[in-house]
Design a protein around this nucleic acid. Structure first.
Lengths: 92, 92
DNA sequence: TATACATATGAACAAATGCTCATATAAGGA
DNA sequence: TCCTTATATGAGCATTTGTTCATATGTATA
């Protein structure tokens, strides 16, 4: 039927918390704790939302001791997000 | 705060029904009825969802008699959607 | 103006979503 | 091994979302 993966991808991006997380790690990988501190969103909420972002492969992590450093999976995703930001900026 | 407009845009795209509507009118404007017939989604549901797409300016319409011919607002939006389709196709 | 067709809209309801709180798991250091 | 720090996860709950059904609005034509 309709492209399920695209829906999931858009859905994952269509949430304020998740977009804030994405912004937060857009240019450098960060631990869950750091994301939580910088965004002022609870650790639990961050973890829950990171799982959703992981599931659609928007983010991945690298282990570093007991930390997990999350980053945006690839540049294509970044480009798409950038395009949307550009688009909404243009429109006014 | 976080870019509300981007969230709304992604959210609007993150629904199966709405993406089917978008696919349906991607290359040519169509009336609500035609969209309803081609997608096999009720007229009411189409109307409700078109409102959401209108609100974030993903679609617009042109009156043509008693019909309203809906189309994708601009090419930037189309490009973004295309990019996502491309992206999910690549990933497998 | 009356009728028919096209579209929009409100209410109601079920399903999905996101948060918090409590707790589990994982991993490094004493 | 025990403790501490970092992260994940499940349950519960309130909110949001998408659908249907019924009806309203809008517009052309007889």
């Amino acid at each position: 039927m309709n492209n399920k993966k695209s829906v999931s991808l858009f859905k994952a991006l269509g949430d304020s918390t998740r977009l804030r997380i994405i912004d937060c790690i857009f240019y450098e990988a960060k631990s869950v704790n750091k994301i939580s501190l910088e965004t002022n969103i609870s650790q639990s909420a961050i973890s829950h939302q990171l799982k959703i972002l992981r599931d659609v492969d928007i983010v991945r992590f690298e282990k570093r001791g007991k930390e997990r450093n999350y980053y945006i999976s690839d540049n294509h995703i970044k480009m798409i997000i950038d395009q949307v930001y550009e688009h909404v900026d243009e429109c006014r």
